[in-house]
Design a protein around this nucleic acid. Structure first.
Length: 113
DNA sequence: CATCGAACCAACC
DNA sequence: GGTTGGTTCGATG
């Protein structure tokens, strides 16, 4: 599955980098102190959840694209290109609560519905 | 609750 | 073609 894109007169399947702008927009809908999961983003974009991790790993601009706000659906941190310790620090600074090694359920945006 | 393993799929070799 | 990820989900104890 995945998106189909128009590329200079040709229709083709989207490459990972083609998702960056969409991911950027979605991530900016997550307020500080909240997180979402790889699978939530994946469902929106119609890709496999592992691909979201790889798309986020492409992100060079950690200032404007807050990819630290995406964690595993079970609350464990997942990865981060600059190390999960740093990811946890960032989340805590923003007010995300942890139970041991897991992000608290109440900090997941999808649980507020 | 925790652990396990299959399924996922584009990129890279 | 095989391996590899910033993962998930269901099954099992």
């Amino acid at each position: 599955m995945g998106l189909i894109v128009w590329d200079n007169g040709r229709v083709r399947r989207a490459k990972l980098e083609d998702y960056m702008d969409a991911v950027y927009i979605l991530l900016n809908l997550i307020p500080p102190g909240m997180v979402t999961s790889y699978s939530t983003i994946a469902k929106i974009l119609k890709v496999n959840s592992r691909l979201i991790g790889r798309i986020l790993a492409l992100n060079r601009d950690l200032i404007i694209v807050p990819c630290h706000r995406v964690v595993r659906s079970n609350g464990s941190l997942g990865g981060y290109s600059r190390g999960v310790m740093f990811k946890r620090k960032l989340l805590e600074l923003e007010g995300v609560a942890f139970n041991n090694l897991r992000v608290s359920r109440r900090c997941f945006l999808e649980n507020l519905l």
